[in-house]
């Protein structure tokens, strides 16, 4: 017997880029994260051919979940066609043989930063969110080990204090993204930099959400049908962005999260932030038989 017989034949890289031990670790950490909703599980973030802070956490989670039959959609600020989104999506196709898509409904895995698609996700879909800063307590407690103790004690008074002071100072809550939210009545998470508009979509959702921070080496999850409650005061209701009555100038759709486009004359136009959702609306307007799934928000309201 020679050494050659004992080793695997040479390949340029392992299936799904990460080696099996890395994927095994990530799978175990994901299971733990699902078992303890909202708890930040530390993991050994591997090197991937992308700079830390560009979605390496999400990339590793998706690579682990990948199989040859996977259909992958990647969203960057709501759009499928930004450089970052395209290159990540192509990477999945190249190292995992995954099918690329821009259609929320066709995807099995959706990796995203900043947005959750407007169309409702199903039980068989997984949402992977890239997280730059997983620690909701970072602003009030710079010492990470003390912050972990505070999570252990469910000592979240100071997070409310931050909201209290925003109300005192500005008369309303100005926390725009990463709105601290209580998962399953126990752990407060930072739901990645999604807008307040999207936080409500995590509550009692049909799909599994994995949140992964590559630079900070933390992974946490919101399992399906789990309570996600943004921190609010009894007498100050949670308020999403005022996009209810904004109309997309491309697709003439009203009541979804919009990008504001400042115009030369000082006014502004709006376009749908979820770009493929917009594409589908336009194609439908043009008479094509496009299937659009149920949306979380209807007429700018969610209930």
């Amino acid at each position: 017997m020679t050494l050659k017989d004992l080793t695997k034949p040479w390949a340029a890289f392992n299936y799904g880029f990460l080696d099996e031990s890395a994927k095994r670790e990530l799978r175990r950490k994901m299971l733990k994260a699902v078992a303890v909703p909202g708890y930040q599980v530390p993991y050994a973030s591997r090197e991937v051919p992308m700079a830390r802070g560009w979605g390496t956490g999400g990339l590793q989670a998706t690579l682990t979940l990948l199989k040859p039959t996977s259909v992958v959609k990647v969203i960057d600020q709501g759009a499928d066609d930004s450089v970052n989104a395209v290159s990540i999506r192509k990477f999945f196709a190249r190292v995992g043989g995954a099918v690329e898509t821009e259609d929320t409904q066709k995807a099995t895995i959706i990796q995203s930063r900043h947005r959750i698609p407007e169309e409702k996700l199903r039980e068989d879909q997984i949402l992977v969110l890239q997280v730059p800063d997983p620690e909701p307590l970072r602003a009030v407690q710079p010492d990470m080990s003390i912050a972990r103790e505070m999570h252990g004690d469910a000592d979240y008074g100071q997070l409310w204090l931050v909201l209290y002071e925003q109300l005192v100072k500005s008369g309303r809550i100005i926390q725009g993204s990463s709105y601290p939210s209580m998962v399953n009545g126990r752990y407060v998470i930072s739901p990645s930099p999604i807008p307040r508009w999207d936080v409500k979509k995590l509550h009692q959702a049909d799909h599994l959400t994995i949140l992964s921070a590559g630079r900070e080496k933390r992974i946490y999850a919101v399992p399906p049908y789990t309570n996600v409650e943004p921190l609010v005061f009894d007498d100050v209701p949670y308020r999403v962005e005022d996009h209810q009555d904004k109309t997309c100038y491309r697709s003439n759709v009203t009541g979804f999260f919009m990008n504001e486009l400042p115009q030369d004359d000082g006014s502004s136009r709006h376009e749908l932030s979820d770009s493929h959702f917009g594409v589908k609306q336009i194609r439908r307007n043009e008479g094509e038989a496009v299937e659009i799934a149920k949306t979380w928000y209807n007429n700018g309201r969610m209930d």
Partner: peptide, 9 residues
């Protein structure tokens, strides 16, 4: 807040 009061006013 620590004692559980969640009413801003």
């Amino acid at each position: 807040l620590i004692a559980g009061n969640r009413n801003f006013a």
